[in-house]
Write a protein that binds this DNA or RNA. Structure first.
Lengths: 151, 151
DNA sequence: CAGCAAAGATTGATGGGATCAAATATCTAG
DNA sequence: CTAGATATTTGATCCCATCAATCTTTGCTG
């Protein structure tokens, strides 16, 4: 079964085993053709690199640097630079935690909150492929994913 | 509804509208907590950066540089370096297209094919959250996503 | 209390990636 | 043949990832 057109899919299903594997392959395809490009595009409009955008999204509540690093699956020292640049732009502030003066809590400024809001809204927009599903399929999809994620 | 634990979710559902939006938010959460980390980890084992891995996966058939660039949503000039490094490692070859000597077709070497195979297999493995679903949910999920992607 | 190991964050070095402008080689139309 | 378009490359600049080393602060232990 050769793929159609320009093969926009990542030829993922070839290696998938079982229904879960196939579903996962299709989901990743959706993400790579829709999700990631949009994330990058929206980030560019707001002049945010993907890691900066990611960090901003995680900051709906103040967090220590180390927690950010863990959540972003990257090294501690990496976060320093990302936060540096966000701080220079006034989107973020470093607060010293009073219970432990080693840790710095990163908090959004008002401007940062505004940008985060816009970013989140744009990213939450589902791709057309999902919007085009029947309402019943949409609900079923949501319900199954809720069960998967354990919500 | 404050999130539980360390808030591994990206607080995505707050901005989602409608079932499709919620489903999308859940899918992205799955991707960010499972998919991307695994992609990066598997890449590290094989000593491939994420873009190198991505490019390799797209090369199940020889492609011109420009086509790779379009598929990876990046600038043409970007691909040059990525392919340079893959070529230095002997995973890839540049072939001059005979119908147009401007274009270079990128083809996997045998070693490249082996690596690509291992990468693809590892990535195709669905996250536990999906494996844990009932077989019926798994099938339904796959079917809905097939409809969405239009397969 | 003194000393010391561990934890949180930063710095510096190195290499890869994104983006943009400019250059090169080739093709195609007229 | 020539002008313009196309595919790729180069160079410059910035950002990100990773690792080792450093600094401060904490908490433990004798």
């Amino acid at each position: 079964m050769p793929s159609k057109g320009g093969d926009p899919g990542l030829e993922l299903t070839r290696y998938a085993e079982g229904p879960a594997g196939e579903a996962w392959a299709l989901a990743m395809r959706l993400f790579f053709t829709s999700g990631k490009p949009r994330f990058v595009a929206v980030g560019q409009e707001l002049d945010l690199s993907p890691p900066q955008g990611h960090a901003l999204r995680l900051l709906h509540a103040p967090r220590p640097m180390g927690e950010l690093a863990r959540m972003m699956h990257c090294d501690n020292s990496n976060i320093t630079g990302i936060i540096d640049r966000l701080e220079e732009r006034g989107l973020v502030r470093r607060l010293v935690a009073e219970h432990d003066r080693r840790v710095k809590l990163i908090a959004l400024t008002e401007e940062g909150e505004r940008i985060r809001e816009r970013l989140s809204r744009a990213i939450a927009q589902p791709p057309e492929a999902l919007e085009a599903l029947s309402p019943s399929d949409q609900r079923t999809l949501r319900d199954i994913l809720r069960r998967a994620v354990g919500e």
